[in-house]
């Protein structure tokens, strides 16, 4: 069973991020980077403090974090991020309306929903509502697409 302290991992991640950002920010001219320099040092210091506090504390590491739960979270995150990326790409390729209706349908399907009639009705009505609110009432310019503009 994988055992680790969430806070220790977070603190380590912060120290690494602070170190990487420090390399970038300290290469900028001083007068343009006072503020980010202070912040990067602050993040590193807070990360070190958190790590030190957790390393020195006599606390018993609680029951191991449920690794399976993290796996579910990561899988869900992958699904959400990749779906949004694919949706945005399809807006670029086809047009907003087709891409939105398809995205809504397939995203619901990917999440395990199987009521086809509800899915079709939701996809079409929501696409129409969003089109009406944003492009007709609020006059937001429609995104440019390669096909079916």
């Amino acid at each position: 069973m994988l055992r680790f302290s969430k806070d220790k991992v977070f603190a380590t991640v912060c120290i690494v991020i602070a170190a990487v950002l420090a390399v970038i920010v300290f290469s900028y001219p001083l007068e343009s980077s006072y503020f980010p320099r202070i912040l990067v040092v602050f993040i590193g210091a807070m990360g070190s403090l958190l790590l030190a506090r957790h390393s020195l504390q006599k606390t018993v590491v609680k029951a191991a974090e449920n690794f399976n739960q993290y796996k579910v979270q990561l899988n869900s995150a992958t699904l959400v991020f990749s779906s949004i990326a694919a949706y945005t790409l399809s807006i670029y390729l086809v047009n907003y309306e087709i891409a939105t209706a398809l995205f809504l349908f397939f995203f619901m399907l990917a999440l395990g929903y199987r009521k086809i009639a509800v899915m079709v009705a939701t996809s079409l009505s929501l696409t129409f509502s969003l089109y009406l609110i944003f492009f007709e009432i609020l006059a937001v310019a429609r995104p440019d697409s390669l096909f079916f503009t």
């Binding site: 995205f103 619901m108 929903y113 899915m119 939701t122 969003l130």
Partner: peptide, 11 residues
């Protein structure tokens, strides 16, 4: 239902 709400929020 969660899938409908999640898809709506993302859109």
């Amino acid at each position: 239902p969660m899938p409908v709400l999640a898809a709506t929020i993302v859109a």
